[in-house]
Simulated scan of single mutants.
Amino acid sequence: MNEIRKTSLFERHEHHGGKIIDFSGWALPVQYEGITAEHEAVRNFAGLFDVSHMGEVEAIGSQSFDFVQNLVTNDVSVLEDGQILYTFMCYPHGGVVDDLLVYKFNKDHFYLVINASNVKKDFKWMEENVGNFDVKLNNISDYVSEMAIQGPNAQKILQKLTDTDLSEIKFFYCKRDVAVAGANCLVSRTGYTGEDGFEIYLFHEDAKKIWGALMEAGKEEGLKPAGLGARDTLRFEASLPLYGNELSEEITPLEAGLGFFVKLDKPNFIGKEALAKQNSEGLKRKVVGFEMIDKGIPRHGYDVMADGKKIGFVTTGYAAPTVKKNIGLAMVDIAYAKLDTTIEIQVRKKVAKAKVISKKFYTKNYKK
């Protein structure tokens, strides 16, 4: 455990009895009480996650907008100050460098939130693509702690600790300099669970105090600490992609079914030519949802079969706690992507029948 990095909340995880694992070089809890209990707490009450391993990069300067607009697939020009965008950075061939959130503080100041496993790679990619843009990039990942409070009671709990009216923060908007239990925080109405909630960015020295204050404020509201396991089952049920599963250097956003976040009518962005070509020629494969017909739980990496041949692979699969079905997401040849198509999943040594279904496994409960 000495080899890997600890977040500012590591002692809190030990206090709560967290089962610590190595996640992308970080010592993080996969669960406390149990994945299903934590999953259900978020769906019905609230859960508190340590996401301090995530990366944060500032883009500051007179051409920071132009830089970010060229860097990502979505259209940054639609953002108001304090608004947030989900998007991708792509390679010239269309594969994904990473998926990320773009926060617009103002026209000269953007805040990019990237995945923990990709921080070094992403920052190097950004630096390589600064070109002649008048922009300064600051990788502040090592200086920022982050936690997420998610679930129907999230606002009620967090509101106890701040005078800022949280109801005024709309979905995918943020507010800076929010005092939470006396600590200066950036608070955004975002998350990765399909539920309403907030992500809180703050200095390391304040993290343990805020975590404790939130747990105390949430005692009567059913708040539980939640680990990486529940984070993955929650995002999966809400059909939110995970880099390394539904997205990768080899998988484009269009193949992942996330073309909404790729604005091909933008003047330019890295990867546009390849993605426009893929869009005009038509997809050869696609990520689909599926439900098991036979017994068996699908897992990441399992082969998908049909007509006696391999037609794809499972990107994510679970016995989903809320929908109570064995379901998954899989990359399959386009000929097998239609709803109700029968496919087979190679579950260890046996082949189990499944059918293609909508990826809308769970109706998201965001506050619009």
Score class of each variant (00 low, 15 high):
140 I>P: 13
306 A>H: 03
130 V>S: 07
279 N>R: 15
261 F>I: 01
191 G>S: 02
102 V>Q: 00
180 V>R: 08
95 G>R: 02
17 G>N: 06
217 A>Y: 09
184 N>F: 03
57 V>I: 15
108 D>T: 13
20 I>T: 03
43 R>C: 15
349 K>Y: 11
23 F>M: 11
72 V>C: 11
318 Y>T: 14
256 A>Q: 10
77 S>F: 06
226 A>T: 10
206 D>V: 12
30 V>M: 06
60 I>Y: 09
338 K>R: 09
336 Y>P: 03
350 K>Y: 14
149 I>R: 04
10 F>C: 00
98 D>M: 10
167 S>R: 07
9 L>E: 01
224 K>N: 01
76 V>I: 07
269 F>K: 11
201 Y>L: 15
243 Y>D: 06
43 R>Y: 09
117 S>F: 13
198 F>E: 00
178 V>S: 03
197 G>V: 02
11 E>F: 06
241 P>R: 03
212 G>M: 04
196 D>G: 06
20 I>D: 01
320 A>H: 12
30 V>T: 14
94 G>R: 08
310 K>Q: 09
309 K>N: 08
4 I>C: 02
223 L>S: 00
87 T>G: 07
147 M>L: 15
292 M>I: 08
297 I>N: 03
128 E>N: 11
182 G>I: 10
62 S>Y: 10
329 L>E: 02
145 S>I: 09
38 E>K: 09
75 D>F: 05
100 L>H: 11
55 G>L: 12
